[in-house]
Amino acid sequence: MFKKDITPAPKQKLKSSVQRSLRQALLTTYPLMTPYIDEILPKKSSLESMKLPDRNTLYVLDNVPLFYQQDTGEVMPHLRLVHRFPQAFPTIRIDRGAIRFVLSGATLMAPGLTSKGGRLPVEGAAPKLEEGKELDQKVDEDGRWSRELEKGEPVVIMAEGKEEACAVGVLVAGTAEVKAKGKGPVVEDAHFLGDGLWNLGTE
């Protein structure tokens, strides 16, 4: 999505009501963020927004990029935020061979996940998010998520042998489907390390 470099645009201060609704939306999308939300978005903070090409909006707090959002779609975390709070987002992991493709903006394909180095949610994982159990989901020592992720969910992409996340994107195929089919695209149009959004100056 951000393969090309982006030129910084002027920032606008957000209304506090907009900020509040954004906060609510974040908590619904990322229930795991609940313990950290006050640190990510302090109540008194004044959030700013920056308009980016392709109807994207970037939310910036104190010159630190936090989230971006395309149109009125899902609010996605910026990778710098993911690096700060890796526990707050569901993850999948790709094998080593796929890293260089993902880091040049390719669509993430299923074999990168189903191979030995890749990690999809554990076998026999709960297929759905259960009401009231939002905070129970987590990643196990092996790097597998504790429940199946659904199509359309935002997901953080980790990499084999690396500690930090390398991309963020929306699943175009549920993880159960990926396991069953083993081919086809999984994450299209991701925000990856070193892309235009990553390099964007927000000073």
Binding site: P42, H83, R100
Partner: peptide, 28 residues
């Protein structure tokens, strides 16, 4: 962050000063 709240959970990640990526990704 100049945090006053109980204890900041935020991790501090070092980024490469040349290519801005986390150092483990420098090879790319």
């Amino acid at each position: 962050q100049p945090e006053i709240s109980s204890e900041p959970q935020s991790r501090h990640v070092t980024y490469c000063g040349v290519c801005t990526l986390p150092p483990e990704y420098c090879e790319y």
